[in-house]
């Protein structure tokens, strides 16, 4: 059954979209990630305009993160104060990202910029995860103990001004680094249509030294609010949020995530991380390939966007 998407202005098979949402939902349930980094490129491959894929992605991520964030909040796994600082930064970053997106679309360089962002971030994160998971799988095989993270170390992060006390995280640090991290993630969210958990979680653990128990909850807290703001800004500035498309993806994603979570329980953490790293690198390589290989058609046409060049 074909369905006409009102904002993407194209007719797509609804079953295909449901399946796509379901598959991405399955993987996100399996790995415990948002899945935006898979969904947005897949929508672009399907022929959805890049701007609509990115804008609609933020709405889908909002829906898929909200229940997780509520659950974490109920279990008291959210450092609300830290979350607020991250959100404040995130809103600024999102605003910059959405505005930059409009300018880049007028210049005709938005698709290129999105692809370069994807290649850079997915390449770096995927490579780091791959190295880490292979290392820990090897250590386990050879019977060595997995080194635990040392706490109480001080880094350059602790020398900055505007110190704040984050009770839940048992931290007394400057508000600048969390705000910067939040802003960076908000910017990525707007440009790439991702939640940004894959950057925020490691940054909170390694840079801010937030206890792992509150990292997931706090990052979900940030994602929910920043995604809500991003969805709103995308709708206003770029008119690139397709509610019909998002709803189909949400329905598929919710169902898929249930199966994914069940399947994920049967696999070991290191194995999951290795598979996720491989998947991330695969998406990265695919996008890089499209950038570098000589295109079959070097011309493209598009509508004139707001005022022209």
């Amino acid at each position: 059954m074909n369905i006409y998407l009102p904002i993407a202005e194209m007719s797509v098979n609804a079953a295909l979209l449901l399946g796509l949402g379901g598959a991405v939902g399955f993987l996100s349930g399996l790995f415990g990630v948002g899945g935006g980094f898979l969904l947005t490129p897949l929508l672009i491959f399907l022929g959805v305009p890049t701007s609509v894929a990115v804008g609609t992605g933020s709405m889908q991520i909002l829906a898929s993160s909200v229940s997780g964030a509520m659950a974490q909040y109920r279990r008291n796994n959210v450092d609300v104060k830290m979350g607020m600082v991250l959100v404040a930064g995130g809103v600024v970053g999102s605003f910059i990202g959405v505005s930059l997106m409009r300018i880049l679309r007028q210049m005709g360089q938005f698709e290129l910029f999105v692809s370069l962002c994807y290649v850079t971030f997915l390449g770096a994160v995927g490579a780091l995860m791959l190295i880490e998971s292979v290392g820990s799988i090897q250590r386990q095989r050879s019977g060595q103990p997995v080194p635990t993270r040392q706490t109480g170390q001080h880094s350059w992060v602790h020398g900055l001004p505007f110190k704040m006390r984050f009770h839940r995280s048992k931290l007394y640090i400057s508000a600048v680094p969390p705000a910067m991290i939040g802003a960076f993630v908000g910017f990525m969210a707007a440009i790439m249509g991702v939640g940004g958990g894959f950057v925020m979680v490691p940054a909170m653990i390694y840079l801010l030294r937030v206890p792992t128990s509150v990292v997931i909850g706090t990052s979900l807290f940030q994602i929910v609010f920043v995604m809500a703001v991003t969805t709103l800004l995308q709708a206003i500035e770029n008119k690139s949020v397709d509610v019909v498309l998002a709803l189909i993806l949400i329905v598929g994603g919710v169902v898929g995530a249930q199966f994914g979570a069940a399947a994920g329980g049967k696999l070991k953490g290191e194995q999951l991380r290795f598979m996720l790293a491989a998947l991330v690198l695969l998406v990265c390589l695919r996008i890089a390939w499209d950038l570098m290989v000589t295109p079959a058609e070097i011309f493209s046409i598009g509508p004139l966007i707001g005022g022209g060049l």
């Binding site: 709405m59 889908q60 909002l62 829906a63 898929s64 993160s65 909200v66 229940s67 509520m70 995604m227 809500a228 969805t231 709103l232 800004l233 995308q234 709708a235 206003i236 949020v241 509610v243 998002a246 709803l247 949400i250 329905v251 919710v254």
Partner: peptide, 14 residues
């Protein structure tokens, strides 16, 4: 429209 999109997303997630 954006506000409604946000509400729809939150409600459907919940």
């Amino acid at each position: 429209y954006g506000l409604i999109a946000v509400i729809i997303a939150v409600l459907s997630g919940l």
